[in-house]
Write a protein that binds this DNA or RNA. Structure first.
Lengths: 134, 134
DNA sequence: GCAAACTTAAACACTTTCCCTTAACCCATC
DNA sequence: GATGGGTTAAGGGAAAGTGTTTAAGTTTGC
């Protein structure tokens, strides 16, 4: 079975970048041109957003987009926002406040730090009131 | 910019499948063989798990390498190894023994056979004690 | 057992991606 | 203007992915 979308080269560049190295520095380390490093990094970012879009598609397969939890939002305020939007759509959310918060954190632990949303979270709902996050 | 990982053909098959159609029925609709529908569906599922793995990799970027589960290791001995290494790093693992073992096997089923590690598994940990495998 | 649903393997043409080079360009700051 | 960081475009060779067919193999339910 093949691994993820990113090639070894792409992962390598992303790791060095994460450490704060410039493209020029990376180019010297991996023995190529800085233009090439740029291209590889760009391809990696492209692949990452393709991966995101792919999973988005899955949710849209049986769910509709409900709302977005914007970066910085208090996690405890998410439920009322979600309930309000669901009501607009004439749908009933399957989870109560507590389990909704748990589900949010469990499904995407890396997107929250403490009570705060670290990164935009898309909320999807299907006819059964199931929620999905993207 | 390219779209997600799934081709139009793959999305088409997944949508019909979601509706409950058999591969044979889909084959007739899209004018090809059922074997081909099977292949396309399989490729779609494969692409979806590649997308998931790709995003998993992103999390390991925020994480540091903790240790390696060497091929041949008894899976039941992994937790104590991991706990010990995490303590050295001053980090607390987020999972208890049972859920850690489950998470190991669920994340990479093909790398374990029974209680044994079949292939080296790299363990990463982030500041929150989340574990990732590479 | 039988049939329907599903899976797999091999092979093929076709397309796309990947890494690389070279050469140019933008945009800050000094 | 020069320097450093980053980006873009064009092109090429190797590798991988896609859809397809044919043919064989499971698995599942009646």
């Amino acid at each position: 079975m093949k691994q993820g979308l990113l090639t070894d080269r792409q992962k390598e560049v992303l790791r060095y970048r994460k450490k704060g190295l410039t493209q020029q520095q990376i180019a010297e380390i991996i023995h190529t041109s800085k233009a090439n490093v740029c291209t590889i990094e760009k391809a990696a970012i492209e692949n990452i957003s393709r991966a995101r879009e792919t999973l988005e598609f899955l949710y849209t397969l049986d769910a509709i987009h409900l709302c977005t939890l914007k970066s910085g939002l208090d996690l405890l305020k998410a439920p009322e926002l979600i309930y309000a939007e669901a009501e607009k759509q004439g749908l009933k959310v399957k989870y109560d406040t507590i389990s909704l918060i748990n589900r949010l954190r469990d499904a995407n632990p890396e997107r929250f730090s403490g009570r705060q949303v670290r990164e935009d979270v898309e909320i999807y709902i299907n006819k059964d009131g199931d929620l999905y996050f993207g």
